[in-house]
């Protein structure tokens, strides 16, 4: 008699690898493969639906049949690692990058990267914005050493293609909007966040994007300013704080020690 673990591994082979040999030997005589197909179908349809919800613009760009074919390959190579399907699909953009049938659509992986960031922002944990009184009460000599904790929904994307324009045209615009898109218009520096009215995708200048990226990565204000030459960092910082993009801060150790 096989152990429970052996049964479960055999079932996994049937669903993920489409190999019924091991599990078929554990079933009563005369049980057809079509009963296993019911489970395989539920597995595939459910996960394809999860990917469709996360990547609607990619699906529109390539069409339903193409998307389902790509999803089936992706699912067998990258089945979910947790029972939390809102977080399923992180590897899909890189999968598309190497998916030969999509090679002519050079912008497709960038659109997928944007959709993944939007999905993360949509489902990110709630967090109260930083209380600015706390920041204001900090001694002036410590202000340059402040390092922030970003809101869980905030992320920065540096993309080679104008994925935000494509994404908006695909989801909100008609054929005319789509036809007007120049997919080779160059790079896009984006900030994605969840605001009071839902998920926002903002286009930043490159210096402003570097500043935001460094702050979100936990660099000090001083270090972020050094990498943001040409940007009005005071105005940018005020905007980040006003939009609640940070939820906490600390004063970095080394500079703190030097100040003391």
């Amino acid at each position: 008699m096989p152990t429970l673990l052996e049964v479960q591994r055999a079932m996994r082979a049937s669903l993920v690898d489409r190999n019924d040999d091991a599990v078929a030997a554990m079933l009563p005589q005369g049980i057809g493969a079509d009963r296993l197909n019911i489970y395989r179908n539920t597995f595939l349809v459910g996960l394809t639906k999860a990917l469709s919800l996360c990547f609607p613009a990619v699906r529109r760009l390539v069409g339903a049949d193409f998307f389902e074919g790509a999803a089936a390959q992706f699912i067998s190579q990258h089945p979910p690692r947790a029972a939390w399907l809102d977080r399923y699909g992180a590897e899909f953009p890189d999968f598309l990058q190497h998916f030969a049938p999509a090679a002519t659509l050079a912008y497709l992986p960038d659109v997928a990267r944007l959709e993944w960031a939007v999905n993360l922002a949509l489902h990110a944990a709630d967090a109260a914005p930083l209380d600015l009184v706390r920041l204001g009460s900090l001694a002036p000599e410590h202000q340059a050493s402040v390092a922030f904790v970003p809101h869980p929904s905030v992320s920065l994307l540096g993309l080679d293609h104008p994925a935000d324009d494509i994404w908006r045209a695909v989801l909100d615009g008609g054929d005319a909007a789509l036809a007007a898109i120049n997919a080779d218009a160059g790079s896009a520096h984006l900030l994605v966040e969840r605001g009071a009215d839902g998920v926002e995708v903002l286009r930043l200048t490159e210096p402003a994007w570097r500043f935001a990226r460094d702050l979100v990565a936990g660099e000090t204000i001083e270090a972020a300013c050094a990498a943001a030459d040409g940007a009005d960092v005071q105005a940018l910082l005020a905007e980040h704080l006003a939009y609640g993009r940070f939820v906490d801060f600390h004063v970095a150790e080394a500079a703190h020690g030097a100040a003391a």
């Binding site: 673990l5 049964v7 591994r9 089945p79 979910p80 690692r81 029972a83």
Partner: peptide, 25 residues
């Protein structure tokens, strides 16, 4: 039911073999 094996979530409520081992688990 079960849905996880070897760290993979199989996204369905899969049937258990109705055995003493499964009952104990």
């Amino acid at each position: 039911a079960w849905s996880v094996v070897d760290g993979t979530y199989l996204a369905d409520l899969l049937p258990l073999p109705m055995t003493e081992e499964a009952l104990a688990v």
